[in-house]
Simulated assay, not measured.
Amino acid sequence: MPTLVNQTYRLPYRHDVPPSGGRFPDGASFRIEIPSVEGPSVFEAALSAAATYGVVVNRVSQGSGAMLLTTAELRDMAALGAENGVEVSLFVGPRESFDVGANARTPEGAGRGGQLRGVRQLMYGVEDVVRAVDAGIRSFLIADIGLLAALRDLQRSGDIPDECVWKVSVSLAPSNPAALRVLADLGASTVNVPSDLTYADLADMRAVTDLPLDLYLESSDALGGVVRGHEIADLVAIGAPLYAKFGLRNAKDVYPCGEQLLDDAVRNVRAKVHRAAVALEWLARSGSEALQSKPHAAGLGIPRRAA
């Protein structure tokens, strides 16, 4: 990607990182994702901010878990997604960090916080998905390989709809292409990769699968506080098809979210949409011809309105 500074100052620009020829089913090379959209009112705030800034939001995701939303709230989330052509991806609620065991709350065990502990919690994880599917949701954040395999098998047997999307969480992000390929083989539909990947690392990941990759262009402090929205043109060129995710540095953690954190969640999500708007300005300035998917695009896990 030639940049204005290179054109002006004739700085060397390396072209040895291969561009991706991959695309989403609609021919687009990237989509915008806004994470930590924790309930209907936060989703409405995201949509309002998107209208203000002229940003197309293709996917919203949620981290507290479907299990912490009422059935009515799940249906409201599904209805908003269906009406606006936005994928709604909900975290599977049970996880070690919410469980009675102390391991996930220790420094050494924190990295396993998204996993499910024991058969009973695995059962609750599957039921969390089925409950949300009944309410119309069609996309889920997965942080446990056993759960991913179980859901894949249930989908293959017809017990879960074919259109459901299994989005591997950043909590399970692969650090190398071999691990990424394992997740793809286990049935992942789309995979979060670490937010600190170099261009070469991203190209290596892209070389082993045509699955969409999810990459934080800005991440929370807990994920390193990376801020690289200005790099969107290069990252899309190398990683397409790519979900460009906008977390937020210097923001209050809202997991698990409830009424006590609702104002923070709303402010956070509006700031994330603003960050996406700024990144899209950088994309336009670069001269890139990368296309973003429109609402209701093929391949999105858009919810169904519950009967």
Rank of each mutant, 00 (worst) to 15 (best):
L4P: 00
R10Y: 14
R14H: 15
H15L: 14
V17L: 11
G21K: 04
G21C: 07
R23C: 12
P25C: 11
S29V: 01
P35T: 07
G39L: 07
F43S: 05
L47G: 04
A49T: 10
Y53C: 01
Y53D: 09
Y53T: 00
G65I: 12
L69T: 05
T70N: 02
L74H: 13
G81H: 07
V88R: 10
F91H: 12
F98T: 10
D99V: 00
N103G: 14
T106C: 03
T106I: 05
G111M: 07
G113L: 11
R120H: 15
V130D: 02
A132W: 03
S139F: 10
S139R: 07
F140R: 03
L141S: 09
I142G: 08
R152P: 01
D153Y: 02
R156G: 11
G158E: 01
P161H: 06
K167C: 11
V168L: 04
S169H: 11
L172G: 04
R181D: 15
D196I: 07
V208W: 04
S220R: 13
V226S: 08
G229P: 12
E231W: 05
A233W: 08
Y243G: 06
V254S: 10
P256R: 03
C257W: 15
G258P: 09
E259Y: 10
D263E: 15
D264W: 03
A265M: 05
R267V: 09
V269S: 06
R275S: 15
A276V: 01
V278L: 14
S286P: 02
L291Q: 11
P295G: 00
G299P: 06
L300S: 08
P303Y: 06
P303W: 06
R304V: 15
